[in-house]
């Protein structure tokens, strides 16, 4: 009792103090808000916004580096037309990269959702399998992945080949024949072989995605599962009617993450080309290329999120 009195007395004192101060609490709080982000604001101006603006400026200029600073010469859209019309390597890399992103991203999403559903079930050795499937997260952003991938390719060990060379048979073909789907249609054969050939890249670049989907799956209330079982839902129905709606908000997040990750991947050929241009001291051209790539991807993300957003189920609390 005594303590409570003391506390209330304290708050009274506080209230009096507050009245003395002119500034209302809300505004004071807003000022504190600025205080909290001020450090970031300064840094962002210096290390993000100004460089971003400069790089946009460079992309319209011919840039030469001289002692004492950078000299720019206005060229208008000249650098962009150089990048698009004259640099064959860049346009080739750009189109192949975009096509690759286009078919790889959905595959990564489907694959990671599938694995997340499996890893969410209860079975022996679950912790170990989770640890293995998240392992790429710590390796894939670094140069180690580049070397691993390069060595695998040079020894002919990527994808399905890796198993085939080990067991010296065409494993994927055999499996398809075993399942009786080989030769159903040529198109399906090529698709399945393409997936199998790229399994290495797909598995290795879906660590974070699995992590996020798994987190989403654990948010599904147990009551939903119980209800579905009572009604006699099959696993297939359960997936489409319960699991999918619950994880759908994460599909967008994962999609954006996957696309952005491919930006900074050591395997990205467009970025490699940009860096090459940069090392030839063609800074204006390099900036223009970087901006073209960035804008295309940004536009793609915008369009896809607008479409996907229509089909997403958001739980209203």
């Amino acid at each position: 009792m005594n303590e409570q009195n003391a506390v209330s007395a304290k708050t009274e004192v506080k209230d009096k103090k507050k009245k003395v101060r002119r500034m209302p609490y809300e505004r004071r709080k807003a000022l504190y808000g600025y205080g909290f982000i001020s450090l970031w604001l300064v840094g962002t101006l210096m290390f993000f916004l100004i460089p971003l603006g400069k790089s946009l400026w460079y992309s319209f200029n011919k840039v030469t580096i001289e002692t004492g600073g950078i000299v720019t010469e206005w060229k208008g859209l000249g650098m962009y037309s150089y990048a698009l019309n004259e640099d064959r390597d860049f346009t080739d890399n750009l189109s192949s990269m975009l096509i690759e992103t286009l078919w790889k991203t959905p595959l990564i999403l489907i694959f990671s959702l599938f694995i997340a559903v499996i890893l969410n079930q209860k079975f022996k050795g679950r912790t170990l399998s989770r640890a293995i499937f998240f392992l790429p997260v710590i390796i894939v952003t670094g140069p180690v992945f580049k070397i691993i991938n390069g060595d695998m390719e040079s020894t002919g060990n990527t994808g399905a080949e890796q198993f085939s060379t080990m067991f010296s048979t065409d494993l994927v073909g055999e499996l398809m024949q075993f399942l009786g789907i080989y030769g159903l249609s040529d198109k399906m054969n090529t698709i399945i072989s393409a997936v199998a050939d790229n399994i290495f890249g797909i598995v290795w670049s879906s660590g974070i995605q699995i992590l996020l989907f798994l987190a989403a799956l654990q948010n599904i209330p147990p009551s939903a599962k119980e209800a579905a079982q009572m009604e006699g839902a099959t696993a297939w129905e359960y997936f489409w009617k319960i699991t999918f709606p619950y994880v759908s908000p994460f599909i967008l997040a994962n999609l954006i993450f996957t696309v952005i990750d491919s930006f900074t991947s050591p395997m990205n050929t467009v970025m490699k080309r940009i860096l090459e241009t940069k090392s030839e001291w063609k800074y204006g051209e390099a900036s223009a290329m970087a901006w073209i790539y960035f804008l295309i991807v940004l536009a793609a993300i915008g369009i896809i999120s607008a479409i996907v957003n229509k089909f997403i189920y958001y739980e209203v609390d």
Partner: peptide, 23 residues
């Protein structure tokens, strides 16, 4: 300001690395 944070996620480091170098 939060939009800028989102931009920070989206803009690849390669885009701003040259001006940063000059800076």
């Amino acid at each position: 300001l939060f939009l800028i944070v989102i931009m920070m996620i989206l803009v690849p480091p390669q885009v701003i690395s040259l001006p940063l170098f000059a800076q």
